[in-house]
Design a protein around this nucleic acid. Structure first.
Lengths: 297, 297
DNA sequence: CGAAAATATGCTCGTTTCGAGCATAAGGAG
DNA sequence: CTCCTTATGCTCGAAACGAGCATATTTTCG
């Protein structure tokens, strides 16, 4: 194998959920994700990623999963570089973080993705821009409707990345202006990040929202013991919408992923039973949370 | 960003389904996948991949989707390299392929993955080796059971990669011996490939099997017009198991992804209606094939 | 202390989706 | 004309879902 030598960068999206809010670990006061170059000392990509993330933030990554690899369009001088991004699930610790390292609510970057409470972000702050962008193009209008659930289309929570990319294409996020794309109205609300880090965060959220539906990875974000409501709030925080409590309970119990600890949680109302993830399941990893289809025969 | 310069390789897994058999486009008489280094002339990773695949095989890639990126464990001298793999869906053409380029039935590499007809591959050729490997380790036994549906566990068709990796770990595929791992009995049947190409193929099959269940990508593999049975056979070929015909028909029709062409297909029995993928849907790409859950509220 | 508020939990009901089959329709081969 | 083969329609019971009603326990507040 030959080809020009290039540089490889490892980028982490460390996620935690603390008290009903999803958080992402950032550098420079929320403007960048932890990242660093792949070095020869790294035994593997994941090892390199963990090394960098911990070195930069002082916080160890837990469960790690590769997201996507992309290359910048050959920005000549410095030579080409590719970025390999990872989703990391951890628990937020109270350990003080150094310098400008901080946990940020991820909806700070995507306010329109949080629909747990009725807020008209999209109607008032995004739809006008989309209308302007899609005026005169049925194709634009159709895409906007599908992504943002306009014109009677249903809202699909998994389309975080598609929505961000559409806003970028439409010149409705600041990154687009920064990169020299034409504008179509006021910017959508939401904090900007350096380079394409906000896009990577969107990728991470998309993946996480999709994956919690068929794999038991939420537990990577939960403490040892928790109540069913804790678990529900965590999932709601990630999914960005609320769930029907009794049905959620039924679903979880039918999966048999949890076991009671025997103790109860204190709180403002009736105490709830505490549960923990069934250790036996940890080995399996195969099914769980599933609900496949396509009958055999 | 700095870090040592490395080499990046782009690897394609070009898949087609022809007459009820899934095929993969290979080089060197089935022993390697098309691959080549990322070059500065490539506008993007995907562009580079398409370029290499077409140059090597003479066959253009159709739909392309990134699979996974991995690094070899720093094989010193030549410098480090990373590989970025892609799944590509196309239609097999009758165009003659040059040299040692050929389409191969992918079950040639994973005979145990084809369960459309009852064949005791696993019982006779794999279980003995697994038994030997897991003798004395409950953890090994549990993993083997879950992966291969032993001891009453259900068979999960999506675990192609997990099964291959387990066989590798257990020293039951030739690559393991080649890489110097201890053996645990006769090798499982199935053709070997160069480097880790067979593992990449397993990754591609896993992804494809999982994805056809919730996204309408099968159509990338179908001709313009087809009967419902054609479509069913294609999916069965990929999934490795047969489907209940009437229910399959009901499912497909309920999704409204297809429209009748008006003509009929000839054949051995009653002529079947021909369908085509609804062009309007091409724009959507969002839902389709779905069957999510988690009630809102 | 008694009532109101806040949660936790149990259960029901009508609707859909799924898995399995029975039955009928429409060509081709002998 | 009859049999074989594949296409299609429909039904039935089970399981999964979406929405609520009802009850049980605690804490909080007047």
């Amino acid at each position: 194998m030959s080809g020009e030598p290039i540089h490889a960068e490892l980028i982490a999206v460390p996620v935690a959920v603390t008290g009903a809010r999803p958080r992402v670990l950032t550098l420079f006061d929320g403007s960048a994700l932890p990242a660093g170059p792949l070095e020869s000392g790294h035994r593997s990509l994941q090892a390199g990623l963990r090394n960098w993330a911990e070195r930069l933030t002082g916080h160890p990554l837990g469960y790690v999963e590769q997201l996507y690899t992309f290359a910048d369009p050959a920005r000549s001088r410095t030579g080409r570089s590719i970025s390999i991004s990872y989703l990391a699930l951890t628990a937020e610790t109270r350990t003080p973080l150094g310098g400008r390292v901080s946990w940020q609510d991820w909806y700070r970057y995507f306010p329109w993705e949080d629909r747990r409470e009725k807020i008209a972000t999209i109607e008032t702050a995004i739809k006008p821009g989309l209308d302007h962008w899609s005026a005169g193009s049925d194709e634009h209008r159709a895409r906007a409707s599908l992504c943002f659930g306009l014109d009677g289309a249903a809202w699909n929570e998994d389309l975080v990345l598609a929505r961000y990319e559409l806003l970028y294409e439409a010149g409705l996020v600041r990154e687009a202006a920064r990169d020299g794309r034409p504008a179509h109205g006021a910017f959508a609300p939401g904090a900007i990040m350096t380079a394409d880090h906000r896009r990577i965060l969107a990728t991470a959220i998309s993946r996480l929202r999709a994956k919690i539906k068929y794999r038991p990875i939420v537990f990577e974000l939960m403490p040892e013991n928790f109540t069913l409501l804790d678990l529900q709030r965590c999932i709601e925080a990630i999914a960005g919408h609320t769930l029907h409590k009794q049905n959620f309970r039924r679903l979880i119990e039918s999966q048999k992923l949890l076991e009671e600890t025997g103790s109860l949680a204190s709180g403002s109302g009736r105490p709830a039973k505490l549960f923990r993830y069934r250790p036996e399941i940890l080995a399996e990893r195969a099914h769980a949370g599933t609900r496949l289809t396509l009958a055999r025969s």
